[in-house]
Design a protein around this nucleic acid. Structure first.
Length: 344
DNA sequence: CAGACGTGGTC
DNA sequence: TGACCAAGTCT
């Protein structure tokens, strides 16, 4: 067993670093706005899923000022499909604050005080955009640390210990001098070598320093607390058109599930299959099919119905009616995009 | 502090 | 097919 060498990791990074849209090339200066935007999008979200959203977002909102000036509905529409929609609300609020103060704060405390920025993102932006010598601890770094130090305690309980161990990795002179590269080297190591299922230990620059590799348990770490079962829920969604053929949508409440997003109207979702009686003022009701959708903490069977409705009845049915002229409206979260796309 | 909070890809 | 997981944060 050796000690994990910051120099060895950086040498590996110089040869194998991923090229990503939000990542600058060697010698270029990072733009805090782009670093921040990418970090928010990447929270609990894969690189592949983020790439097209990042490109569209940057085209629509090229600067923090452009984003700050944008309308809330446009920000939500650009985020639709990416999930965890409180990120979009906090993103916009954060942009307004940062634009008003003339730029991002460059300290961890200053960053963490902003909406949507927690311990991880504050350190990621501080390291990547401002060169602060800190180790942002995400799922990748947690996994690397759990294996490197053979931590057998399960997460999330082991999180504080893993974070403390991770901070010991950047104490070398090269890691201090190249804080941005060092943080991203840890991400890349976790994403391409020290992967969750079948780690490529033979290719790892820290192979000789890895306690889990020495014990032959690298692939088993980190241990996780047992998951709770996902309950099943049922719901109904109405695809109602007015006499002009426009589709009735509603703006959902700002907080909670799919908060702030557009959706199809329908009764609250329940643990039992609901009665599909059409609301008052709905005519020519017809069942189209069922959409199955899995959220983080429950699964949903959503029965989809078509029908016709008048303008007055729509106001009674929906708190905030939004009429869509488009044949297939965009800007909907995944669940309602599926329901709208259901052939019928 | 444990639970809420989306979605799509992988094995 | 289903369980797991991905650059977490908020309450």
């Amino acid at each position: 067993m050796t000690t994990p060498s910051d120099r060895a990791l950086l040498r590996w990074y110089d040869r194998h670093r991923r090229v990503l849209p939000w990542r600058v090339l060697p010698g270029e200066t990072a733009d805090p706005y782009r670093v921040w935007l990418s970090e928010i999008m990447l929270q609990q979200t894969t690189v592949a899923a983020v790439k097209p959203y990042y490109a569209r977002f940057l085209a629509a909102f090229p600067t923090i000022d452009a984003l700050a000036r944008a309308g809330e509905a446009d920000v939500f529409a650009a985020w639709a499909g990416l999930g965890y929609y409180s990120r979009a609300r906090n993103l916009h609020a954060c942009a307004k604050l940062v634009a008003a103060r003339g730029g991002f704060p460059d300290t961890i405390a200053g960053l963490e005080a902003l909406p949507g920025i927690g311990p991880y993102t504050a350190r990621a932006v501080a390291a990547i955009a401002f060169g602060a010598p800190v180790v942002p601890v995400d799922g990748n770094v947690e996994r690397v640390a759990a294996r490197l130090f053979a931590v057998a305690e399960p997460v999330p309980g082991a999180r504080p210990r893993l974070a403390a161990l991770a901070q010991t990795l950047n104490t070398g002179a090269e890691a201090q001098a190249r804080a941005s590269d060092f943080a991203q080297a840890l991400f890349d190591l976790g994403a391409t070598i020290c992967t969750p299922r079948s780690p490529a230990c033979a290719l790892c620059p820290w192979r000789d320093a890895c306690a889990a590799q020495a014990q032959g348990i690298a692939a088993e770490l980190p241990l996780r607390a047992p998951k709770v079962a996902r309950p099943q829920r049922f719901g109904i969604a109405w695809r109602l058109r007015d006499p002009a053929g426009r589709l009735l949508l509603e703006r959902r409440p700002p907080r909670g599930l799919l908060g702030g997003m557009l959706g199809l109207p329908g009764p609250a979702w329940t643990a039992e299959r609901p009665d599909a009686a059409p609301p008052a003022g709905v005519n020519d009701c017809r069942e189209i099919g069922t959409v199955r959708h899995v959220f983080t903490h429950f699964a949903l069977d959503l029965q989809v119905f078509d029908g016709r409705i008048g303008l007055e009845a729509a106001v009674d049915l929906v708190a905030t009616p939004v009429w869509s002229d488009a044949a297939s409206p965009t800007g909907l979260p995944g669940l309602f995009a599926k329901a709208v796309a259901l052939p019928g």
